[in-house]
Each structure stands twice: as structure tokens, then as C-alpha cells.
Amino acid sequence: MAEQVALSRTQVCGILREELFQGDAFHQSDTHIFIIMGASGDLAKKKIYPTIWWLFRDGLLPENTFIVGYARSRLTVADIRKQSEPFFKATPEEKLKLEDFFARNSYVAGQYDDAASYQRLNSHMNALHLGSQANRLFYLALPPTVYEAVTKNIHESCMSQIGWNRIIVEKPFGRDLQSSDRLSNHISSLFREDQIYRIDHYLGKEMVQNLMVLRFANRIFGPIWNRDNIACVILTFKEPFGTEGRGGYFDEFGIIRDVMQNHLLQMLCLVAMEKPASTNSDDVRDEKVKVLKCISEVQANNVVLGQYVGNPDGEGEATKGYLDDPTVPRGSTTATFAAVVLYVENERWDGVPFILRCGKALNERKAEVRLQFHDVAGDIFHQQCKRNELVIRVQPNEAVYTKMMTKKPGMFFNPEESELDLTYGNRYKNVKLPDAYERLILDVFCGSQMHFVRSDELREAWRIFTPLLHQIELEKPKPIPYIYGSRGPTEADELMKRVGFQYEGTYKWVNP
């Protein structure tokens, strides 16, 4: 592979701008107003304001973009700056750019259920340069409990009458099928589907988006991507930290609602779906819905739930269990780990287990898709061969690698495990991989909904998990304890083995 010439960040961002501006969906010269509902909250200060700053800094926003914060707290732009700027990672050389960014910011205080507050917000936006005809993007960085009041008031008082209007809704989209349907029906009564952007930030990850290209742009994968060759698929999300004093919020939802029903299920769809007619948003989402419709409700015998306990040999936070978090209700049975087996009941995947695993306070930070292939028929190497695996590593250190057998150097035919490896950090030294939120917010500006969740996708996802969630809430089974920093409950490994996964433990990928 030829040595790549190092590029400056300015040059890299210039390439990104060229890609972005050559499309006809990006209205570079139009006025846009980006409204952050819930501007005083954690999500706004840690993710949304920093993301908008990065896009502005790199010249990736339309030229005439204004940012308006809205929340109940009586704040000023200076207050917003004070709480969000520490997350910007701005350099001293960017000081003038930073001043320009905050000059485009404003803030309006108001209630979430008060019509007069929204009329005041609308008047404020109209007073901005060309504000009355601007395109408006409303980001709901809010708890779902206020979605209905907020969307109703936005629709009645704050819509642009000339430009387009788009609304970005953060997960969780309800707690179960019934609450999700209620919320979807409410929002759909106010906005068209092409105006609604239900954001799952995992769909903005580079390697998640790469799944489609790997599958449908490489001839070698087509013939082997089926039940005849693939023994099982494992989708993993692991965090090495616990709730760390923020367990009160987590306890309301648990690990299945927080990660599995959305992030992991979306990745499953991209692995299992048929080739779409095109890369058009609805063509892709149509195929994802077909996959979900082929999955039956989760069966309790295919589920393992766990909850982390303190590690007596650990240090600091590792010595504390979930129930030691003062914000967690006493005696909570909320799971911090889950392993679930699903089956896609169609011709391509009949009988292939899709194993979804996620948890907190585990032994490493990792998100990946792992396809394990069947054993080689007619073994001539005296059971020395391990199964081939194709691994798409989402985070950290984005990579695609194939675990395969090669001859060990020497005189004899002794096979050993090795890999074919594409590590993004080595291959793409001159490429700026956008943060997931950067990519998705740019998608909203461009009107691309491919990486957002459609209402029928959402409904099918909740259909699969709601009976299990209701059973857990009714019966309150005690989750299996696992030690902070471990791989999780051993019962999860036993479940995976029972459905056909072979864990060798003899080879570990190392970032080159």
C-alpha cells in the first residue's frame, strides 16, 4: 500500500466541504435556525453545542446559521458558553472563530407547556436576519415526558411559513410498544414523516454505516452471507464503567431499553437485511423493517440478565456495585447486563442465532459485530482449526478484520490463527472521521433520513421486546451478580454456547 501524504486539518475539512456542497440537498446560502429545546441540560452542553461548534469551526454548516437555545432556566448566552465550552476542545488559535460562533447564538427562556412562551420564541426567531423565511431545525434534547406539549406548541407557534421545518427526537422513544405508539401517533398528527428525525446516534458511527458497503459492494461476501456458512452472529456493546452516581436515570430504563432495543437491534438489521433497491432512505429502511418483521418476540429462556457488584480487589469506582450508587433505588432489580438470542425467521437466516450482548462495568470498552462461520467440513488438521470470524469493530479503534487459519512457519503443516486486517487509523491517516452527532446533524440539514429511525421500524423493535420488558417488570427477577471489570455473568457464556457459538479464547485482536 502506497504511503499517504499527511494533510493538514484545513485540507481534510476542505475535502469534506467539497463532498457536502456538491450535493443538491445542502442549501449552503439559505438562512437556517437550529433550535435546541432543553438548552440547559446535560445532553445540550456535552453533545449538541459542542457538535454545532465543530461543524461551524470546520465550515460545514450553511453560511447563515443561527443557534437558539430554549429552556425553562433563566440563562444568558454567557451562561450557555460557560457550561458548554469546556466540552468544545477549542484551541487558543480558534479564539476569534469561537467569538464568531457565540455571536450567532441567542437564548430564550420559557415554559414547555405555555403557548405564550412559544409565541415569544417565534418572535425572537423572526427578528433574526431573514428569520421569518429561514429553515428551522428543532432538536428535542428533553425528557420524553414533555415531548407531547413541546411538539404541539412548536407546531402551533414556531413553524417557518416559507422555509422547511424538521424536528429531531432523542431516544428513548417511549418505554414499550404502547407508549411508543402513543408518542408516534401524537407526533405524526403534527408533522409529516419526512419532517421527523428520530435519532439513534449509533447509526451515525462510521463502521455501522460501513456495514452496507461491506455487504453490498464486495462480491466475495454475497455468496457466504447466509445460514449455510454463518453459524452465529454476535452483536456486542461493552462499557468498562458503571453508573457513577447517575444511576437514578438509568434505573428508569435499564440496559435493554438503553442499548439493546435500539443500538444493537439497528446493527442487527444492517447485518441481516436484503440488498435495498438503492441507497435512498426509504429503500434502506424498507429492508430493515422486513428483517424486524421476521423476528419473533424474545423468549425468556433465551435471556440472561445481570447486575454488577463491587470488586473487592478493585480501586475507586470498581469497588462499588450498582446498588451502592446513592441515586439507585434500594434493592433495585434493574439489569445492567443483558444477553438475548433472537432468530430472523426467513430463508437466508433460518436457524442462525443472533446474540445481542450489552452491559456496564465490564472488562473493556468495545462495540462490534462478529460473524462466526461454520467449521470446515472434512477436517484434515486433527481438530487444530478454529472457526473463521469476520469482525466489524465499531469502537474504539474502528477496524474490519477476518480471523482465519494460516500455516505456522516451519517444517510442518501446523495451522495457527491469524488475521486479515483493515484498521482505519492506519489505512486512512488523512481522513477526519466525523463524530456520530456531527454526521447525523449534517444529515438533518441535508434532509437525508437514511440513518434515522422510521415509525414502522420503531414499532417493530418495541413489538419484539415489550413482552419481555413487561414480564421483567411484573416478576422482578433478581439479576445474576457479576463482578465489576469482569466479562459479565458466566451464564451468558453458557447461553451463547448452547445456541452454537464457540468461544476459543486463544486469539485476541490487537490494534496495530
Rank of each mutant, 00 (worst) to 15 (best):
V5S: 12
V5K: 14
V5N: 09
L7N: 09
R9K: 06
V12A: 03
C13N: 05
C13L: 06
G14C: 08
I15M: 10
I15F: 13
I15N: 05
L16I: 14
L16C: 04
L16W: 07
E18Q: 11
E19M: 05
E19R: 06
Q22E: 11
G23L: 15
G23W: 15
G23C: 15
D24T: 07
D24C: 08
F26W: 07
H27M: 11
H27C: 12
S29N: 12
S29F: 13
T31M: 09
I35Q: 00
I35N: 03
G38Q: 00
G38L: 00
G38M: 01
G41N: 12
G41D: 14
D42G: 12
D42V: 11
L43E: 08
A44C: 03
A44V: 04
K45L: 15
K46W: 08
K47Y: 14
Y49F: 04
Y49L: 13
Y49G: 01
Y49D: 00
Y49C: 00
P50F: 00
T51W: 14
T51I: 07
T51D: 04
I52R: 01
I52G: 00
L55F: 04
L55V: 02
F56H: 03
F56T: 02
R57Y: 02
D58K: 06
D58M: 08
L60C: 04
L61Q: 00
P62A: 07
E63V: 08
E63T: 12
F66P: 03
I67T: 02
I67F: 08
V68C: 06
V68R: 01
V68F: 03
G69Y: 00
G69L: 06
Y70E: 00
A71K: 00
A71W: 01
R74I: 11
T76A: 05
T76K: 08
T76V: 05
A78S: 10
D79K: 03
D79L: 04
R81A: 05
Q83W: 06
Q83T: 10
E85A: 06
E85L: 09
F87R: 03
F87H: 09
K89D: 11
K89G: 07
T91L: 12
T91S: 10
E93S: 08
E94L: 02
L96H: 11
L96S: 14
K97W: 02
E99N: 12
E99Q: 11
F101A: 00
A103S: 14
A103G: 09
R104Q: 07
R104K: 08
S106W: 04
V108H: 05
V108P: 00
G110E: 01
G110R: 00
Y112N: 03
Y112F: 04
D113R: 04
D114Q: 08
D114S: 08
A115N: 11
A116K: 06
Y118H: 04
Y118C: 03
Y118S: 01
R120K: 12
S123L: 11
S123F: 05
H124M: 06
M125N: 03
M125E: 00
M125V: 13
N126A: 10
N126L: 12
A127F: 09
A127N: 07
H129Q: 11
S132A: 06
A134C: 13
L137A: 07
L137K: 01
Y139V: 05
Y139K: 00
L140S: 04
L140K: 00
L140C: 06
L140V: 10
L142K: 03
L142M: 09
P143T: 07
P144N: 14
T145I: 12
T145F: 12
Y147N: 12
A149Y: 11
A149L: 11
V150T: 10
T151P: 08
K152W: 11
N153A: 09
N153C: 06
I154D: 00
I154N: 00
H155W: 12
E156S: 14
S157M: 11
S157L: 12
C158N: 04
S160D: 07
Q161H: 11
W164Q: 05
N165W: 00
N165G: 04
I168C: 05
I168E: 00
P172I: 08
F173Y: 12
G174I: 08
G174Q: 04
R175E: 11
R175M: 12
D176G: 13
S179L: 06
S180H: 04
S180I: 09
D181F: 06
R182F: 08
L183M: 11
N185E: 11
N185M: 12
H186F: 11
H186N: 07
S189F: 04
L190R: 08
F191L: 05
R192W: 05
D194F: 06
Q195M: 07
Q195G: 04
I196S: 00
I196T: 05
Y197G: 01
Y197H: 01
Y197C: 01
R198I: 04
I199H: 08
D200S: 14
H201V: 05
K205C: 15
E206N: 14
Q209C: 08
Q209V: 04
N210M: 02
L211I: 04
M212F: 13
V213P: 04
L214W: 08
F216P: 00
A217M: 06
N218H: 01
R219M: 13
I220T: 06
F221M: 14
G222Y: 11
G222A: 12
R227G: 09
R227C: 12
R227Y: 04
N229T: 12
N229C: 07
N229R: 00
A231N: 08
V233M: 05
L235D: 02
F237S: 05
K238C: 12
P240F: 09
P240K: 12
P240T: 15
P240G: 04
F241A: 15
G242H: 09
G242A: 07
G242C: 07
T243H: 13
T243W: 10
G245A: 12
G245Q: 12
R246H: 13
G248I: 14
Y249Q: 12
F253R: 13
G254K: 02
I255K: 03
I256S: 01
R257Q: 15
